[in-house]
Nucleic acid binder design. Structure first.
Length: 577
RNA sequence: UGGGAUGUCGUCUAAAGGCAGGACACGAGAUUUUGGAUCUCGUUAUGGUGGUUCGAAUCCACCCAUCCCAGCCA
């Protein structure tokens, strides 16, 4: 109802902004920005930053969040990434309106600023090679050495820098450096490079430039040009803040934004660096940036996640400065919570086991009406056909059931959801392999709809589909990409790929789904009763060849019991030896 | 070992000198035509040692642990 009801709990950044507003620091303005480099796809860590920056802007009257592409390195950046980033931000539910910017749009002004710096005697052209610069930078504990070119005259610097722009020099032969302090304990202040020669075509400026500004120079000035008030970034830039401030203090700028750093998101059982994700893509460990196992926005979308669930997740994890690894279970909770409310229920049998109901007439078909959502009649209902031959889940039958197994077993009665009670009377097996081929059951006509007039109870309720009416489907069961909560945290420096989960994808090609799914559209989401949430794959599913992706399983208390029993049996085995 | 940061339930995160709270996870129970959902209840935490104070997660000192920085990446 009120804004307070929907806005996230205050965090230290919102507290700073509230304080600034109170003291009138930025004349009541709140302008943030989300500044991706178009060198990869956005992931859930970016979603955290997007929710923060766009969220903060939306919480204040007149607040604005800019989308600015930080496209200063043409060797790594591509239009494809720009397009995907825009698409993902929109899909998440945020809008930048007219405020779409590119750092490359500022190249001319940035060049002017560089000139200004040179004229002030605060920058110089350095002819040292990359290797020489590295060697003279010093170490964490030793100061660096000043470049022999550090004392060049302003006139010579101006001349050289102009000629750098004209393309007179080769890549790597010269750079422009800020003249700060080679003995600074902060390595970033040891005369950082601010322009390098790169004779590469830029996705937006083409061949217009052959010198490109570095991030440390570009970012504060872009922020200032746009009138950003709060420049929110991640912790690794904390050491860069003195440099951020140095440029803004040295140059004539109209405003001096405040950089604030927060801890980037880490999620258990996945990796969250663009470099590592790129590696998984390029080396074909996954099918692409949008592989449903990837923590990318496009991967999560294809997996079946909703924008709301991701936004809720980002709100729940909070914003702080402490390094942390958020439990994947929280992300899974967020999508279950959302889909539990929104997803219509349907029945699908993933691993079919045929059941013949001996006392049901051979040619009879009847229909049962079933609610699309048991807790929300407003979502309507549908009819599902029933006949003598049905499929149930292989895992719902056990010849020799353990305690607490409530499903079907020889001579046991269970309920078929919304249909009848059935009792298993016979098990047909392959004589050679012992594999269960089919089950014979009888049904009780008095239990039509799933209720027994004599009030007798049945422990289990199974999902099912009518064999002749059901549709074939491919179902892709996705699981966590890694077997280790923190695959990159190995002290011995082991390769994170060693912990890839070999079972992160299981493809089922003989699943059967209820006929109402015939018209399912790409990205449609359903709950397959008793199993999980699934969505129609946006790439591979065809009207006559449906493909479903498992978004997340339902919470499964039976699986927990099973796991516990397995552990128990191991213990009792160990007792015996 | 220079500099910058950070330490609160298993995991995230609140508490600006005054009852250590919430969410997830976990456990118990109720309920249930999804072993789902829902509801109720519950276990578990201030890195350490000193100090200041009537009172410390919070202030001070020292220690310990973890993360980031030596790209012409961002």
């Amino acid at each position: 109802m009120t804004e307070r009801d929907t806005s996230p709990p205050p965090d230290f950044i919102r507290a700073i902004i509230a304080q600034d507003l109170k003291t009138g620091k930025n004349a009541g303005r709140v302008v943030t920005r989300f500044p991706p480099e178009p060198n990869g796809y956005l992931h859930i860590g970016h979603a955290k930053s997007i929710c923060l920056n766009f969220g903060i802007a939306s919480e204040h009257k007149g607040g604005i969040c800019h989308l600015r592409f930080d496209d200063t390195n043409p060797t790594k950046e591509e239009i494809e990434y720009i397009d995907s980033i825009k698409k993902d931000i929109k899909w998440l539910g945020f809008e930048w309106g007219d405020h779409l910017y590119y750092a490359s749009d500022y190249f001319e002004r940035l060049y002017e600023y560089a000139l200004q710096l040179i004229k002030a005697g605060s920058a110089y052209v350095c002819d040292l090679s990359a290797e020489e610069i590295r060697q003279t930078r010093g170490t964490l504990t030793e100061p660096g050495k000043e470049s022999p070119y550090r004392q060049r005259s302003i006139k010579e610097n101006l001349d050289l820098f102009e000629r750098m722009r004209k393309g007179e020099f080769e890549d790597g032969s010269r750079v422009l450096r800020a003249k700060i302090d080679m003995a600074s304990p902060n390595l970033n202040m040891r005369d950082p490079v601010i322009y390098r020669i790169l004779k590469a075509a830029h996705p937006r400026t083409g061949d217009k430039w052959c010198i490109y500004p570095m991030y440390d120079f570009t970012h504060p000035l872009s922020d200032s040009i746009e009138g950003i008030t709060h420049s929110i970034c991640t912790l690794e830039f904390e050491d860069h803040r003195p440099l951020y401030d140095w440029f803004l203090d040295k140059l004539k700028v109209k405003s001096h934004p405040q950089q604030i750093e927060f801890a980037r998101l880490n999620l258990s059982y996945t990796v969250m660096s663009k470099r590592k994700l790129l590696e998984l893509v390029e080396q074909r460990y996954v099918t692409g940036w949008d592989d449903p196992r990837m923590p990318t926005i496009s991967g999560l979308r294809r997996r079946g996640y909703t924008p709301e669930s991701i936004r809720n997740f980002c709100e729940r994890i909070g914003v702080a400065k402490r390094d942390s690894i958020v439990d994947m279970a929280l992300l899974e909770h967020s999508i279950r919570e959302d889909l539990n409310e929104k997803a219509p229920r349907v029945m699908a049998v993933l691993r079919p086991l045929k059941v013949i109901i001996d006392n049901y007439p051979k040619d009879k078909t009847e229909e049962f009406e079933i609610l699309n959502h048991p807790n929300n009649p407003a979502m309507g209902s549908r009819n599902i056909p029933f006949s003598r031959e049905i499929y149930i889940e292989q895992g719902d039958f056990l010849e020799d059931p353990p305690k607490r197994f409530f499903r079907l077993a020889p001579n046991r009665e269970v309920r078929l959801r919304a249909a009848y009670f059935i009792t298993c009377v016979d098990v047909v097996k392959d004589e050679k392999t012992g594999e269960i081929k089919e089950l014979h059951c009888t049904y009780d006509p008095a239990t039509r709809g799933g209720d027994a007039p004599d009030r007798r109870k049945v422990k289990g309720t199974l999902h099912w589909v009518s064999a002749p009416h059901s549709l074939p489907a491919e179902v892709r069961l996705y699981d966590r990409l890694f077997t280790k909560a923190n695959p990159t945290g190995e002290k011995n420096g082991a390769d994170f790929k060693a912990y890839l989960n070999p079972n992160s994808l299981e493809i089922l090609t003989s699943s059967r789904v209820e006929p109402s799914l015939a018209g399912a559209k790409p990205e449609d989401r359903y709950q397959f009763e008793r199993q999980g949430y699934f969505c129609v794959d946006s790439i591979d599913s065809k009207p006559d060849a449906l493909v479903f992706n498992r978004t997340v399983t339902l919470r499964d208390s039976w699986a927990k019991i099973e796991k516990g029993m397995r552990r128990l049996s191991i213990f009792s085995f160990m007792d015996k030896v």
